[in-house]
């Protein structure tokens, strides 16, 4: 039974990375949005595999259920904008592609540096209560600040959207 967890890891990792690549490479914006959702879902699977079940379902609730829908709303409201002439800064594309080999070097290096001994110590599930205690006892102040951040985002975005409506 020892091969099942690595197998599932490989499947999920393939979903995550392929989804991420598709976001960047697909020409159509809806394709990007959908593959982003897929990548988020695979990421939730990885969280579950790590034993962080609560985080996994928060991930589904927030990223797949809310942020992807929000982005699809953005896509639907802007429509398929006609592509303009290629007028980007001359070094942008080159810099972007130059990152790709860099990325592979980085990945290989981290795999070799880290993966040999250290196994992930997994407590099976039940991470809800430790998490709740940490957030509401040790991190109470950041928790309140988070609400202020959300309020600022909400008011700012509504003001932006409603401006010029009337």
């Amino acid at each position: 039974m020892d091969f099942i967890a690595p197998l599932i890891f490989v499947i999920l990792a393939a979903i995550v990375v392929a989804g991420g690549l598709a976001v960047v490479l697909l020409p159509r914006i809806t394709g990007s949005a959908l593959s982003m959702g897929l990548s988020f879902l695979g990421m939730a699977g990885l969280f579950a595999l790590l034993g962080a079940e609560t985080i996994a379902f928060f991930q589904v609730l927030i990223y797949v259920g809310a942020i992807t829908v929000l982005i699809l709303y953005g896509v639907m409201l802007t429509g398929v904008a006609p592509a303009g002439a290629d007028r980007r800064l001359f070094f942008q594309k080159q810099a972007g592609w130059a990152l790709v080999p860099l990325k592979f070097v980085g990945v290989v290096a981290t795999v070799f540096a880290l993966s040999f001994q250290s196994n992930v110590v997994q407590q099976p599930g039940g991470d809800l209560e430790p998490l709740a205690n940490a957030v509401f006892r040790d991190y109470a102040f950041p928790f309140e600040v988070a609400s202020v951040l959300l309020l600022a985002a909400m008011i700012g975005a509504i003001a932006l959207v409603k401006r010029g409506d009337d």
């Binding site: 959908l34 589904v60 797949v64 829908v69 599930g125």
Partner: peptide, 26 residues
């Protein structure tokens, strides 16, 4: 009988919306 069953059900409910938006768009 996962110990966060309700959270699981809520998050699945959130996923269904995606299909409807995509159907409308496609």
């Amino acid at each position: 009988d996962i110990n966060i069953g309700l959270l699981y059900l809520s998050s699945l409910g959130a996923m269904g919306v995606l299909g409807i938006v995509i159907a409308g768009w496609a």
